[in-house]
Computed example of a mutant assay.
Amino acid sequence: MRTSKSTYAIIFSLLAGIFLFVFSGCSLELSDAGSADQADGKQQGKQLKVYFLDVGQGASQLLVTPSGKTMLIDAGNNDKEQKMLDYMKKYRIDKLDVVIGTHPDADHIGGLDKVIDHIPVGAIYMPKVQSNTKTFESLLISIKNKGLKVKTAKSGLSWDLDDQVHVDMLAPTGTYEDTNNMSAVVKVTYGQNSFLLTGDAEAESEKDMIASGANLQADVLLVGHHGSNSSTTAKFLKQVHPKYAVIQVGEGNSYGHPKPKVLDRLQQQGVEVYRNDKQGTVEVTSDGRSIHIATER
């Protein structure tokens, strides 16, 4: 059946209306309410946990701070909705203080709607970019139904996730035609350790982050765009100078990720590489001075 141009216009208008609603009003403060039980023993010791969740050919990172504050960045594709809820149960997450949808691609935001439907959320950040897809529409509806207002993800934002863990948003630094370059890029610092989580940011965004003068150095790098040739340029990698890198990639994916050129670049810089397709979920623990890495397999 052929759909008329007027029908497409109506659908797009509805999406635009929801988008404007969820992005209206962008000031949300983190609350301590709901996290006390996590602080009372669910997080042992003074450790920051960063879980690079195995969601196949997609991306998702879950952070739990020493005081039990939580942040979820992305949530895999649509077919990983139940898996994401299972992860929340496994790690005993009963509230998410911060949620970040790095950009509208389905393999990053596909599972976020169900997570938001089932778990209380304090604040949500997304870049100000639309996508005319059912996946994006479903996420906006879940946000609206929870009465949340999206805070715009962009460079220059900075906040304390708790009194020991600091978050800096380094990108997007501007507006780009390619939604990958609109990816929210986050640097998380705990004591002497830091993590750079890059979404699908590509060479153009990487170049602008370097030009911004931001401190890009990090102990752990989430390799951009699943190890695609579009990302992790030599100049960017030199600036980050990581000890460890994690590639969120699905087993036997049709894209050929990660690309040999990117793997060679990492090897040449002596970076220790971990991959979801080979090792499952990668759990990185920091005590603020040293880093320990454990894998699912």
Rank of each mutant, 00 (worst) to 15 (best):
G191N: 07
V64G: 00
L237N: 03
V223H: 01
Y8G: 00
S35W: 02
K238V: 09
Q44H: 12
S131W: 05
H118C: 07
V273E: 03
R275D: 01
S254D: 12
K114P: 00
I100E: 01
L222T: 00
A211R: 14
D86S: 14
G199T: 12
T175C: 00
I93T: 05
K134S: 12
I10H: 01
P104Y: 03
Q217C: 00
D113Q: 11
L170Q: 05
A218G: 10
S212D: 11
G256C: 08
K235T: 12
S13V: 10
T198K: 03
T133Y: 02
Q192S: 13
V220F: 07
N145H: 10
E251C: 01
L96T: 12
D277S: 15
V115H: 06
L30D: 04
Q164D: 15
T285D: 02
Y176R: 03
M182E: 14
K149D: 12
V249S: 10
Y91M: 04
I124Q: 02
K235F: 01
I119T: 15
M1F: 11
I119F: 10
F23S: 09
A294E: 14
L62V: 13
G45N: 15
Q217D: 09
D37E: 13
G191T: 11
T179G: 00
Q57W: 09
V185Q: 03
K49C: 02
A245G: 08
H108N: 08
E283G: 00
E177T: 14
V223D: 04
L48C: 07
D200F: 06
N180V: 00
V262W: 04
M126N: 06
K5G: 00
H108W: 03
G250A: 06
T3Y: 14
S254L: 07
L157H: 10
N180A: 10
F19W: 08
K144V: 09
K5F: 10
M169D: 00
S35M: 08
H118R: 11
G224R: 01
E296Q: 15
S155Y: 07
F12D: 13
N180Q: 11
S60C: 06
E251T: 14
H118P: 00
Q279H: 12
Y244N: 10
V121F: 07
S290Y: 11
L216F: 12
D117P: 02
D74Q: 04
G34L: 08
G224L: 01
K259T: 01
P172Q: 02
K5W: 06
V223P: 06
A75Q: 04
Y8V: 05
S194V: 10
G25W: 05
T281V: 10
Q269F: 02
D200G: 01
V115K: 04
E81C: 10
G199F: 10
G199C: 13
I18V: 12
K114V: 13
L85T: 09
V98E: 03
G256P: 09
L221A: 06
L20K: 11
L30V: 05
K146G: 05
E137L: 15
S155I: 06
T152Y: 01
G68E: 09
G147I: 12
T233F: 04
G174L: 05
D168S: 14
D277L: 05
G147R: 08
D107T: 06
D277Q: 13
I10F: 01
V22R: 01
Y176W: 11
D79L: 12
L216Q: 10
K144C: 09
A234Y: 02
L72M: 13
E272Q: 15
D178T: 08
H292M: 02
V223E: 03
